[in-house]
Simulated scan of single mutants.
Amino acid sequence: MKKRGIGYGCMMYAIGYGFGRPDASAASVEIGEDGTVTVLSGCAEIGQGSTEMIALIAAEELGILPEDVMVLTSDTATTPDAGPSTASRQTYVTGNAVKKAAGELKRSLLMGAAELLGVEPEGITFKKRGVYYTGEKTGLTMADVASHCRRTGKQFMGWGWFNNTTPDVDPETNQGDAYASYTFATQAVEVEVDTDTGEVTVLRVVAAHDVGRAINPLAIEGQIEGGVAMGLGYALIEEVILDKGRPLTPTFAEYLLPTAKDVPPIVSLIVEEAEPTGPFGAKGVGEPATIPTAPAIINAIYNAVGIRITELPATPEKIRQLLKEKGF
């Protein structure tokens, strides 16, 4: 017999290290005479899309296009330290550092544009490589302004450093705001449980995540889908088996991972609740996409057949044993 159930998992996850641990990032931004920009950052790209995130933030702050930005990362000889790509911190911490660096450069570019136009800088804005004054497009381009700044000795580089280090909690009461920002998520899962074999099939997942402002919605969807796939493996099949300290699952032939055929349809719902302290209101995704998945699956199994799994993964053997005890 196959029975279906629906389960939910909710989570709140902090961005960065918190608890007084050092958590900072730096970046530099330089503009060439042709209006193209080079960003130096120690942020390591491990597939999460951080390099594109950096380009998008720099382009938005400077009023140019993302394709005008070249990002150089993770070179210990040339790039400033951005800290590790962990704790779902890079969009928030490095993103803020890049925005600060681009903002410093922008102030110099505004002064250069004001000189060329013969006006005060307060009315000038940059948008899509163009220069606007009091909302009206002028004949100047970002390349014109950048060339003028470089040729007249004005600042054509910007430096940004963002410190996300927060105070530790009170050692006596454990009370306090240990983190600067938090993300929130809820995931719903529908499963089918075969009561004869104990096999669980995840039919679909709906994942709603508060990411602040979505800088790159497509990349966010990718991170959510990847996180769900990881959480599915954690919940159902990934198991380290030891025999007197010796691993019996040393290769992927024994330690199973979800394949593309194991991953169900995933609906990603991006909730945009701007974070005032984040770069353009952004926070992060990363680990939060994985965290609610296993609880949602375990709750769905309970909803389907009334058994509570207390030790992961929920293998068919464990489920069948609990079903037998329940009288199935």
Rank of each mutant, 00 (worst) to 15 (best):
residue 15 I to P: 00
residue 114 A to G: 08
residue 169 V to T: 14
residue 55 A to R: 15
residue 105 L to N: 01
residue 12 M to P: 02
residue 287 E to C: 04
residue 19 F to M: 15
residue 323 L to C: 03
residue 155 Q to A: 03
residue 93 V to S: 08
residue 125 T to L: 07
residue 201 T to G: 07
residue 54 I to F: 02
residue 159 W to E: 10
residue 197 T to F: 04
residue 316 P to N: 14
residue 193 V to T: 06
residue 307 I to Y: 03
residue 283 K to E: 00
residue 41 S to G: 12
residue 237 I to G: 01
residue 75 D to A: 05
residue 73 T to M: 02
residue 108 S to Y: 10
residue 150 R to S: 15
residue 319 I to W: 03
residue 149 C to P: 03
residue 76 T to R: 11
residue 149 C to D: 04
residue 13 Y to A: 13
residue 232 L to R: 01
residue 74 S to D: 11
residue 159 W to C: 03
residue 132 Y to L: 12
residue 52 E to D: 15
residue 157 M to P: 00
residue 171 P to K: 10
residue 94 T to D: 07
residue 70 M to H: 02
residue 12 M to T: 13
residue 139 G to S: 15
residue 205 V to Q: 05
residue 218 L to I: 15
residue 253 A to Q: 07
residue 165 T to H: 09
residue 159 W to R: 14
residue 61 E to S: 06
residue 258 P to H: 07
residue 123 G to Y: 08
residue 124 I to D: 07
residue 205 V to E: 07
residue 1 M to Q: 13
residue 24 A to F: 10
residue 282 A to W: 08
residue 276 P to K: 07
residue 71 V to G: 13
residue 180 A to G: 15
residue 218 L to K: 15
residue 291 I to A: 12
residue 30 E to H: 02
residue 225 E to V: 09
residue 46 I to L: 14
residue 108 S to N: 11
residue 209 H to L: 06
residue 148 H to I: 05
residue 131 V to P: 05
residue 191 V to E: 00
residue 40 L to V: 09
residue 141 T to P: 05
residue 258 P to I: 00
residue 18 G to Y: 08
residue 149 C to L: 06
residue 49 G to A: 13
residue 63 G to C: 09
residue 71 V to R: 11
residue 271 V to E: 02
residue 42 G to P: 14
residue 200 V to L: 00
residue 156 F to W: 14
residue 277 T to Y: 11
residue 244 K to C: 05
residue 100 K to F: 13
residue 96 N to E: 00
residue 6 I to A: 01
residue 262 D to Y: 10
residue 125 T to E: 14
residue 326 K to W: 06
residue 320 R to H: 10
residue 297 I to K: 05
residue 164 N to P: 00
residue 137 K to D: 01
residue 23 D to I: 10
residue 271 V to M: 08
residue 308 R to C: 08
residue 319 I to F: 11
residue 196 D to V: 12
residue 321 Q to F: 09
residue 118 G to E: 02
residue 291 I to K: 06
residue 249 T to G: 00
residue 323 L to V: 07
residue 215 I to N: 04
residue 39 V to G: 01
residue 150 R to F: 07
residue 53 M to R: 13
residue 12 M to I: 14
residue 141 T to D: 12
residue 284 G to I: 04
residue 26 A to I: 00
residue 305 V to L: 12
residue 253 A to R: 10
residue 116 L to G: 05
residue 106 K to M: 11
residue 6 I to W: 09
residue 29 V to N: 09
residue 296 A to F: 13
residue 186 T to D: 05
